[in-house]
Simulated scan of single mutants.
Amino acid sequence: MMTLLFRALALFALLGSSMAHATPGDRGPLLLAAASMQEAMNAAADAWAAHGHPRPVLSFAGSSALARQIKAGAPADLFLSADEEWMDDVERAGLVARGTRVNLAGNRLVLIRPASKPVSLRIGRAMPIARALGDGRLAMADPDSVPAGKYGKAALTALGVWPSVESKVARTDNVRAALALVERGAAPLGIVYATDARANKSVAVIGAFPVGSHAPIRYPVARLTASRHKDTEAFRRFLLSSAGRAILTRYGFSAP
C-alpha cells in the first residue's frame, strides 16, 4: 500500500511540474498512455495543437503503473493502455466514462538484439533461446504485470521455452526500459513491440512471435470519469478519426 501511495505521489509531483506554467484554460487534456505510444502520441498531440487547440499533456509509463495511479486518484482525463486487462481493471473501479472505451490500435511482439551484435536464432517451438543468451539476460517488461511482459511470457510458454529462460529474465517497469537494456548492450536479447524496435536504430529485429502464441495486442483508450477538461472528448475522437489513425499507421501500429 505504501508503494502505491509513493507512486501516486510521484505522479502528482510529475504532473504538477509539467503544468506549473499552464492554467486550465491554456493546457490540453491529460493523457496517461502506455510507454510504447510515446512517438505516436506526441505526434498526435502536435497535430491536435496545429489545429489551434491547447496541446494535450502526456505522461507515459507501464500500463499497470498508470492503472494503479488512476485508481489512486491521479488527476487524468484519458487513459490509453497497452492491453485490455488493465483497462478492465480501471473500468471495474468505475473510473471509465460509459460508452467512451474503444480499441485504438494493435501491435506485434518481436525479439530484438543490439544492432551491432548478430545472433543466429529463428523464432519457433523449442528454439534454443537460453543457449543464445549464454550468461546474458533476456530484457522484457515485468511478465507478472506489464502488458509487453505478459504477452512475452505467454509467447515463450506457447513455444515451450519459458522454463529455460525464466531465471534469466531482466524484468523492467515498462517496455521502453527493456528496449534500453538491449540498446546499451546490457542484454543480448529482448522482447518488445514491433513499434518500439522500429523507433530505435540501435537494435535489430530477430523475428516476430507467431500471432497465435499470445493474446491479440490491443490498445484501448477511454475518457475517465474524473475528467473535467472541455477538450477531452474532442481529442479522444481525434485519435479515433482517420487523421489520428493515419498517425498511428505512420508509427507502425496496426488496426486493433
Rank of each mutant, 00 (worst) to 15 (best):
E91Q: 13
V96E: 06
V90N: 05
A61L: 01
P75N: 02
A76S: 09
K117M: 14
W86Y: 13
R108V: 02
A93G: 08
V119H: 00
D88T: 06
M127F: 05
P75F: 07
V96C: 03
R92H: 12
L58Y: 09
D88P: 07
D77K: 11
V90K: 04
L109E: 04
A82L: 07
I112Q: 05
S81Q: 11
G94A: 08
R92T: 06
A115E: 08
A76R: 04
P114L: 13
A67S: 15
P75I: 00
I70Y: 09
K117S: 14
R68S: 12
L111H: 03
Q69P: 00
G94V: 06
A105G: 06
A126D: 15
V119W: 00
R92A: 14
V110G: 05
P118A: 13
P75V: 00
A82M: 11
S116I: 06
L58V: 04
F60Y: 15
I123E: 13
L109H: 04
G94L: 08
L121T: 08
V102F: 13
P75Y: 05
D89V: 07
R122A: 11
V90R: 02
A61E: 15
I70P: 03
A76K: 06
G62S: 13
S120Y: 00
D83C: 09
R92S: 12
S81P: 09
S63Y: 06
S81F: 07
R92M: 13
D88M: 10
A74L: 08
V110R: 02
G94N: 07
W86A: 02
F60W: 07
A126P: 00
F79V: 01
L121N: 11
P128S: 03
A61I: 00
A82T: 00
A74I: 03
A76N: 07
I129C: 09
R101L: 14
L109A: 04
F79Y: 14
P114F: 14
A65K: 03
L58G: 08
G62M: 08
L58Q: 10
K71D: 15
P128V: 02
G73H: 02
E84W: 01
P114V: 12
D77F: 04
K117Y: 10
D89E: 15
D83I: 00
E91W: 03
G62F: 06
T100E: 13
L78Y: 01
I123K: 06
F79D: 08
D83H: 07
R122V: 01
D83L: 09
E85N: 03
R101K: 06
F79S: 03
A72G: 12
S59H: 15
L66N: 12
A76C: 06
A74Q: 02
L66S: 06
R101G: 08
L80H: 07
A72E: 11
F60Q: 10
F60M: 11
K117L: 15
G99F: 10
S81E: 09
E91I: 00
G73I: 01
P75G: 10
L78M: 12
I129L: 15
I123A: 05
A74T: 05
G62H: 11
G106L: 11
F79L: 14
L121K: 07
P128E: 10
L95M: 14
L109C: 04
R68I: 00
R68E: 14
W86I: 00
V102R: 13
A76Y: 09
M87D: 14
G106Q: 04
F60A: 11
V119P: 01
M127L: 10
L58I: 09
I112T: 05
R113K: 12
I123C: 05
